[in-house]
Design a protein around this nucleic acid. Structure first.
Lengths: 342, 342
DNA sequence: ATGAAAGCGCTAACAA
DNA sequence: TTGTTAGCGCTTTCAT
């Protein structure tokens, strides 16, 4: 049996608006009245009808998280944090999988379609800067990860260049000199592939190492299969690399698989490092050295920033937050030391 | 600018209900009128207000998928299929992560909380049969995976016993005789752990092998870390197993990690098989033999069954569907044959 | 401090 | 085939 304000009002012998006020605290209510209403609510088990509330107030209490691949554990882990934070702030988070396709991304940012969410956290892949600018800004949006830059939206992403520096420097510190990068992207979208490539080149230069275009392997996408294929190519070269910096952990895991297939050893023959610190890399053979962004932090921050916009907190210029990250060394670069606790 | 039915009606010179009818097709509309209305809709960019529609019709067009762990790639992959199917049927799917906690599961099945979803797809872990029965059946629910049995709800899950038979028989066919099972559950919840254990025992018996309780390792949960720990214990035994059947792929991967840590070889010393066929197992070292349920199928079926209930299709007794599965052999049981395509 | 009442945008029953 | 209208449950303005 569904209970509405009306039943509560009747039971407590007060008007609709009084009940509404005890529920929402929009205006003060006398202590004795409040108690009576509260009792009625508890007894009858009232819960507000969100659609009605929305129809009247214009808010749905729903925020969306649009990501390119639910399959990518990085996003799955991030989503977990975002869902929890949203729930804590009284919002429901719904996930949309854009598959990284421009079409679906456009659908997602064009919220006017159905005014069903109060805000959007979006990890863009294929969409252009112009398309983002053209968007109706009525519902707030915060960008995570891949950046579409120079756009009036909050943006949360690690410092890709700095992260790449750390990764490459780690490899250099291991006396590796033919360091490959897997995930060099061709097109001008997927900014972070660019940034990571740039960081890679800068770090090489900083270490006095030459940049060899043959070692910067482009991929179609950024999954395990892409890493596998790129690494096979690299290994087929006359001079294979002695280390690999992968765009992300998934690519790194694919690359490690290719090395194993080829009967070579990690890290003895080839050291491997990724970015993301997905759980998978803590249990792979060998375990994967990686750059670990604080996913929990990113998820919470994204939701907080979005909710702040939705609720019209003092209008700030768009944030551009770079959450912390750290190097986590494991077997794929440090070798034989078997970890006791992964 | 948000456009409502009223604007369309005005622009097309017809009444509200006519516009509503061309949008929803509830009653026929004259061809010429329809065209005029459609033009207005296209020009003005009308999209229905879902909250208003819901308030009136009692339907939100939202279905929930409640799973114990977003982090488990099995569920992530399943969710992808479910989201697509839901979208195809005109529903939005929202995900809830129960973390396998009884509290959160109870929240989820008690939809009266806020009548915000039309139906629920639920993968129960901790909740009891009685708690499911006590639920207000007003909004339909379909159960997937872990079963709470003898309950009036559609249920979709592979035949756990048959799957376990196939797994164990595969190991037996490899001349393994000390076959361990990791994931034997103590409590009476998590039915499928029971069923898989039972299938394991039956298959051993069928092969004329003794059941050794020391080889049926219980775990706290079913993640990589659980498999790792259980396998370490198993390896510390005087007589370690020569094969392992793991509750799922995640557990299997943890177990494989423990074997690697111990400096033993897979499958030479120990063969490993899991259930789920998550992508991770196609790229692990070694690649993981597994029982592959048709996740796409499960996801679609669950949504279809739910939507059928929601839309009040001819009332059938609850389905109990067992989607197909198949054995996928890889290196963790077949050894050295390096796959060319994983 | 409380109540009455006007809609939010839509669907569906009732009329024509 | 089309139009009119009564709410769905709630928030919020205007009275009291």
């Amino acid at each position: 049996m569904v209970v509405s304000l009306k039943e509560i009002a009747a039971r407590a012998g007060v008007s609709l608006s009084t009940v509404s006020n005890v529920v929402n605290g929009y205006r003060p209510v006398g202590e004795e009245t409040r108690q009576r209403v509260q009792d009625a609510i508890d007894e009858l088990g009232y819960a507000p009808n969100l659609s009605a509330r929305h129809l009247r107030s214009g808010r749905t209490g729903i925020v969306a998280l649009a990501i390119p691949e639910l399959n990518n554990p990085y996003f799955a882990e991030l989503a977990g944090a975002a869902i929890r934070e949203a729930a804590g702030l009284g919002y429901t988070l719904v996930m949309e999988d854009t598959a990284g396709e421009r079409e679906r991304e456009l659908m997602v940012i064009d919220n006017s379609r159905r005014q069903v969410v109060d805000g959007l956290i979006f990890s863009p892949v294929a969409v252009t800067r112009e398309e983002v600018l053209a968007r109706d800004p009525a519902t707030p949006m915060v960008l995570i990860g891949e950046g579409v830059y120079d756009v009036p939206h909050d943006h949360i992403a690690i410092d890709n260049i700095a992260a790449s520096h750390v990764a490459v420097q780690h490899l250099v510190s291991l006396d590796r000199y033919r360091i490959a990068f897997i995930g060099a992207q061709a097109g001008d979208h997927r900014q972070s592939a660019h940034l990571r490539l740039r960081g890679y080149r800068e770090a090489l230069a900083g270490a006095g190492l030459p940049f060899d275009a043959a070692l910067a392997a482009p991929t179609m996408a950024f999954g395990r299969a892409d890493g596998l294929m790129a690494m096979r190519d690299l290994l087929a070269r006359r001079q294979p690399p002695d280390a690999v910096f992968a765009y992300n952990d998934l690519v790194a895991i694919g690359a490690m698989r290719a090395v194993a297939e080829a009967g070579m050893r990690i890290p003895d023959d080839i050291a491997v490092i990724g970015i993301d610190d997905i759980e998978e890399g803590r249990f792979s053979n060998p375990t994967l050295t990686t750059i670990s962004p604080d996913k929990e932090h990113i998820g919470r921050l994204a939701v907080q920033a979005l909710v702040a916009r939705i609720e019209g907190k003092p209008v700030q210029p768009p944030y551009d937050i770079q959450p912390p990250f750290r190097l986590v060394t494991r077997e794929s670069t440090l070798g034989g030391r078997r970890a006791v606790r992964p």
